[in-house]
Design a protein around this nucleic acid. Structure first.
Lengths: 150, 150
DNA sequence: TTTTTTGCAAATGATTTGCACTCCG
DNA sequence: CGGAGTGCAAATCATTTGCAAAAAA
């Protein structure tokens, strides 16, 4: 857990970014909240961190998240139900399953996507950097709520 | 081409939506511009259609697109370079390859995703409705521009 | 020192909304 | 007819930006 944070800080430094208090606090937050019911928004992260010893502004949260997304350490997810971006610490490869009713985002990793980047490169000539898979549907709770189950 | 439009209109009607001039004009536009270099934004669609015999407002373009997305006839894509949503007529299953430098979106279909929905359902208990795959990288033109190639 | 990063507040701009009017069914 | 759909303009609100101050390297 703790070494994930350090690993990320090293990766950031290797990419030419400076190590700031704010960045490590945000990274730590993301790593520790990895399994939250709904992946956090920038605003949520800000709300949870603004009162920590090391002050953090909302703009800094946005800046840091952008940096982390560019460094591939974090994934940005649009659940399309609340108009906000959600962020997910990207430890191991996985895809997202998103509830179109309540917006809940859960992770899954039982489908192999290994060949996708090379096939995409082959089909388009692009220099592939990353990929993202999103599946949309109704979560079990909303199935009940909507009378689709039980 | 023309029957694609009619098919879509039938699908809309079957889903309980009314057949309006504006909707058919927008659908026709999307079908005919299927292979555009960059998939259109709501604003672009509006600009191209506002002077047609049947007036169309920007709000209606947004409304119609939302309807079409919900009906699975259209896919919304965020290229993350211009802050706008892009829309793609979803005739046959395919995935998108997006340039992280210029935002260009191209289609590819050489990777099988057939098993994804059932595996996602199995992993999460969600009632799967749709899925979307996005690959990010640098397009050939930008590779040259950025001195990464040639 | 020198450059990056941060914080604050104001600006941006895509998308949404309220309401009166239209028109499909 | 009646309610869904539309147009217009104004409102919303997540995200971005400019600039001065702070702190990495």
């Amino acid at each position: 857990m703790e070494n994930k944070v350090e690993h990320a800080l090293n990766a950031l430094q290797a990419a030419g970014f400076r190590l700031t208090k704010q960045r490590s606090v945000i990274i730590k937050y993301l790593v520790e909240n990895r399994m939250f019911p709904t992946h956090p928004t920038a605003e949520a992260i800000y709300e949870d961190l603004k009162d920590t010893p090391d002050q953090i502004s909302l703009a800094t949260v946005y800046n840091t998240l952008e940096t982390l997304v560019n460094t591939k350490l974090v994934l940005a997810i649009d659940n399309k139900t609340d108009g906000k971006m959600h962020y997910d610490w990207f430890g191991t490869p996985h895809y997202h399953v998103i509830c179109t009713n309540c917006g809940k985002i859960v992770d899954a990793n039982n489908f192999s996507l290994h060949e996708l980047p090379s096939l995409a490169a082959q089909a388009t000539g692009y220099l592939i950097g990353s990929y993202q898979v999103e599946v949309r549907g109704i979560c079990p709770e909303c199935q009940v709520k909507l009378g689709l189950k039980k």
